[in-house]
Design a protein around this nucleic acid. Structure first.
Lengths: 338, 338
DNA sequence: TCTTGGCACTCTGAACAGGCGAGTGCCAAC
DNA sequence: GTTGGCACTCGCCTGTTCAGAGTGCCAAGA
């Protein structure tokens, strides 16, 4: 039972610190939370918690602040992800409902997430590799220039221009279009790429066919698109105010470097599970004072990509986790419909 | 001739202040620039410049700092936009050369511009209204669902999904495709929209045709796309360091609010002219300590959109103007080719 | 009439000292 | 195991001092 109270004290410390951004002392703690014991008792508990590494004091005669380990315990054992209110749910769903295409869905998600959490939001575009080809279109820009348009099941559109060695008639173009679509349409990207590559290397095939097919395969396997992501809510960084150098600067730099952000997002998790990485647990050492809350999303509960929030270790974990989970769920549903 | 020297003094003050970020005093001035006169003389000139409002001192017994008016004079009369070195030119051109599509061109331009200027770069997508339709593609997702893909001369692709009241056979689809392309392909957006709208309102036309045509017209006239822009180099804000609240915060907020940024970019200028708006000259009062350097770009010297840089009033104007102009020129050339 | 050296003056920013208060740790009593 | 009491430790705030940078102005010189 002391054990229980100690955890209550830790939870109270975390909550107060997140709210006030100031080290929290024993007196304030008993006053604000109805702990039913005296400050002295709380002090004993605090001393114990400090011994175990869950909290520290910035300096003697200051209140206590949670450590990364403290936040970790808080998230693992003390957090019940609070469900969103129905009003919030409705707001989310109407906000996302109006999207006209994939870009729009992603854009809206970032904005929504950053506004809900008042933090920096990151949304990764759905991966190509697991999606299927919906249609390939070939448009003649000139007799010897072709625009390839690749439309995927996720709603993404890729385009490439190819120069041909020789002019191509309308009939040839139509035949090529039929052929390519015969191969690719409906197939999974990975499969389509393999077949197209084979054809591209077939010495019996026409040069024109080969270059077109090769470019298509390239466009499909181009991992640039896997790595596309959108960031929003950078203005929320302004609220950091203090700790500019230690927190804001590296984060701003990470935001520019999408490669770093991708590492930060990590693997997509499925089934409504939310991943929380606290401080130095993350893969980027410059960001040792920021936490990352992510989850996967995609149609049919297939985690095609990751979305989440980056913020100070001192953040409202329950609220952020709830928001991330909710947005992922609604975005997935929208992708279902499309 | 004193007049001349005074201007030299102003130029020296601006250059030194931009370089050191510190108020510049009379002694430092004569030492660093070979002005050939004594500090006392410079002091007299400074007093005159201050009377005329070109410089101020933050407080008595500090050096001088240029005012907005001072920067204005500097830009108007004292600046010779220094041409880029051939190495820089080549770097720019190879960096932009590798772009595969419009998104890529825009993305690379932002990155390039922000790296060249070490500032926040903004690139607006080419406007729809002046571009022409290259091709319209209709893809049957299901018998009663159609994906419309609209390909424009600028390389932009718009897509929409329409639900049809009744199923559509392959032949009907092909006929519709021919018809729509007959109307739109090659036409200017504004013309195409007008014709399509007419058809959409024609009571004799089939319902299916009408809904498709209507959606297309909508996609074409959708001004969302005019307003799309990409921002990069926010990490450079970290270099502000001081003046966080007065400069960085409002800028971060503006970066999120694309509407504000669009106002900030203003009208696109043609013919290699670079617009410079200094401090409060701009339309956004929160950004009274930031300057904006912009120019128009587009194929065939047709200013379809604006691109530029946002930074502190205390910036390297000659260098920034040169970079903005150079990037605009190269991007325009690339759009020419496409 | 412009330039220059000299000099008194002003103001900022850094460094330092002292007092206040929040918060702790420990101990003895319950 | 809990509680009240008490001495103690620091960080923060305030006030003061001081050096340095830079100015404005004046009188002398070109």
């Amino acid at each position: 039972m002391q054990e229980e109270r100690r955890l209550a004290v830790l939870r109270a410390i975390v909550e107060d610190y997140v709210a006030t951004e100031e080290p929290v002392g024993s007196r304030a703690l008993v006053e604000r939370h109805g702990l039913g014991v005296s400050p002295a008792t709380v002090r004993n508990d605090m001393a114990a918690l400090e011994d175990e590494g869950y909290i520290t004091q910035p300096h003697t005669s200051a209140g206590r602040v949670p450590t990364d380990k403290g936040y970790r315990l808080f998230v693992d054992r003390l957090t019940t992800v609070k469900p969103m209110s129905t009003a919030e749910k409705r707001a989310i769903s109407t906000f996302l409902e109006g999207a006209v295409d994939l870009d729009d869905v992603v854009g809206r998600s970032v904005r929504l997430l950053s506004q809900l959490t008042r933090q920096v939001a990151v949304v990764q575009y759905p991966t190509l590799s697991r999606s299927t080809v919906r249609h390939v279109e070939l448009v003649a820009l000139a007799p010897n220039r072709l625009l390839l348009v690749l439309i995927l099941s996720t709603g993404r559109v890729e385009q490439r221009v190819v120069e041909l060695a020789e002019d191509l008639g309308d009939d040839d173009l139509a035949a090529l279009r039929r052929r390519v679509n015969g191969i690719a349409t409906g197939a999974q990207i990975s499969v389509a790429v393999a077949v197209l590559r084979d054809l591209a290397e077939d010495p019996h095939a026409e040069a024109t066919t080969r270059v077109v097919v090769e470019t298509l395969a390239e466009a499909m396997s181009d991992h640039r698109s896997d790595e596309r992501l959108v960031v929003g809510g950078a203005a929320n960084l302004a609220r950091y105010g203090d700790s500019f150098d230690s927190a804001v600067r590296p984060l701003l730099e990470a935001i520019e470097e999408h490669v770093v952000l991708l590492r930060l997002l990590g693997e997509a998790t499925t089934g409504g599970l939310v991943t929380v990485r606290i401080g130095a647990e993350g893969p980027v050492e410059q960001l040792s004072s920021t936490s990352v809350v992510t989850t996967g999303y995609g149609p049919h509960d297939d985690a095609l990509a990751t979305l989440g929030v980056v913020g100070p270790t001192r953040m409202d974990y329950p609220g952020t986790m709830a928001a991330v989970r909710a947005v992922a769920r609604y975005v997935s549903r929208i992708l279902d419909e499309a």
